[in-house]
Computed example of a mutant assay.
Amino acid sequence: MSSGLPNDTLDKARSFIYRNARLLDRLRFAYYWEKGTKKAVLTALKGYQNDDGGFGHALEPDIRCPHSQPVPTELALLYMDDLDRYDAGMVGHIGRYLKQIALPDGGFPRAHLSINAFPHAPWWETSSDDAFSVNPTGSLLGLLMKQKAWMGYEHEPWFRLSVRQMWEHMENAEPDGYHEAVHWISFLRVFPDRALSRPYLNKLDEWLAKPGSIERNPEAQGYVHKVLDWAPRRDSYAAKFVTPEEVQLHLAYMQAEQREDGGWPISWATLSPAVELEWRGYLTVERLLTLKSYGKL
């Protein structure tokens, strides 16, 4: 461990994860720090995939619905992307699911109505599932374009229509906060036609540069998105909008937030103590990966 952090940061986090985290996040921790394998992580992830190809079963802990939903499916792709290993079978089945749920004019809804029949955070309450949402459409498309394990999506009408919907959305709006901007980034950063994406990247950059888009105060309370939420890795797109001094300040504050039990806290209310621990297990792995990326672990 590099100087600047207490030498028990990782040990305390390890204890928290093995006492409290889901199998999936325990295996992620084992892969990154204890010679675990990508295969083990992917095997655990596959347990969340339904026969229709989508993901459910509370992979997104605030969505307790076992049925497939767009956001847990996006999260599954993010897990694979973080491992830098996309499973061809899982991704191919995801493509089948996305074809089934794509809206007539392209894109995907934020959630399906089936979400309402199971416990869920209040912001996931859904009255309609026939409206386009950039969250999670942007990342679903971006991650499909990024992976190379399954290329069956490229000429699908639903994919082309969904890309067109993203362009139309970005033409007529700017990001509506963090939860839209990250989907702009995911989509635009990998779109192969750089000349086509450049005007929208410029629009995104102008928004990111505005005061208030990135929370600079490490002590800000509540559900805010700070420097290291936007730039959790050195190569994060938004890293160019923060200074090295801001990064170091937020890294120090992040490390100080580690609780005595070894885990990191979350900044929103959850459905139950069990759900809180699921989120904290996930977030603790993420915090460690951020510290590692910036040379602190």
Rank of each mutant, 00 (worst) to 15 (best):
K12V: 06
V134P: 03
S272F: 12
A111I: 01
P119F: 12
D84M: 02
G152W: 01
P136N: 05
W124G: 06
N172S: 15
Y18Q: 12
N50W: 00
N202M: 05
Y97R: 05
L75A: 07
T43L: 11
W184R: 15
I17R: 09
H155E: 11
V242R: 04
R234C: 05
K240I: 08
D130L: 04
K292Y: 01
T37V: 05
Y200W: 12
T270G: 07
E168M: 13
L83R: 09
Y294K: 11
Q49H: 14
A220V: 10
D52F: 01
K35F: 07
L204R: 10
R233N: 10
Y86V: 01
T126H: 04
G56P: 13
E154K: 14
K46S: 15
W158D: 06
V134F: 14
V247D: 02
H155P: 00
W184F: 10
Q221G: 03
K146Q: 11
F55K: 10
R194E: 13
W268K: 07
L161P: 00
G92K: 11
L271P: 08
G36Y: 15
A256T: 00
A30I: 02
I17W: 03
D261W: 00
W230M: 04
M90F: 03
K39W: 03
E34I: 02
L141C: 10
W279P: 03
L249W: 06
M166R: 04
A231L: 07
T290M: 13
P66N: 07
P136C: 07
V71H: 03
A111D: 02
V247E: 01
H93G: 00
L283H: 12
A181N: 07
E276I: 01
W264C: 10
M80T: 00
G212E: 13
E74C: 01
F16D: 05
V134N: 10
W33T: 13
A30Q: 13
I185Q: 08
L83M: 11
M145L: 07
K210C: 04
L161G: 00
S213W: 10
L143N: 08
L23S: 06
R164S: 14
G95Q: 10
C65F: 12
K99N: 12
Y153W: 15
P199M: 02
W33R: 10
L251Q: 08
E174G: 09
H179R: 05
L98Y: 02
S139C: 11
G295T: 14
L196K: 15
V224H: 04
H183W: 07
F241Y: 13
W167M: 04
G53F: 01
N217I: 04
L141K: 09
T137P: 11
L5P: 01
S236Y: 09
M145Y: 05
L59C: 09
L59K: 13
D261S: 11
Q248M: 11
D52I: 09
T9K: 03
P119A: 08
R233M: 02
A13V: 12
E286C: 03
V275S: 14
V41R: 09
E286M: 14
F132K: 14
D62M: 02
V71E: 11
A231M: 06
G212F: 07
K240E: 01
P72K: 07
K99S: 13
L188F: 12
H250W: 00
A21R: 09
P136M: 11
H120A: 07
G212T: 14
A231G: 06
K210E: 14
L113N: 08
D8S: 08
V227L: 06
G152H: 00
A13C: 10
R234H: 05
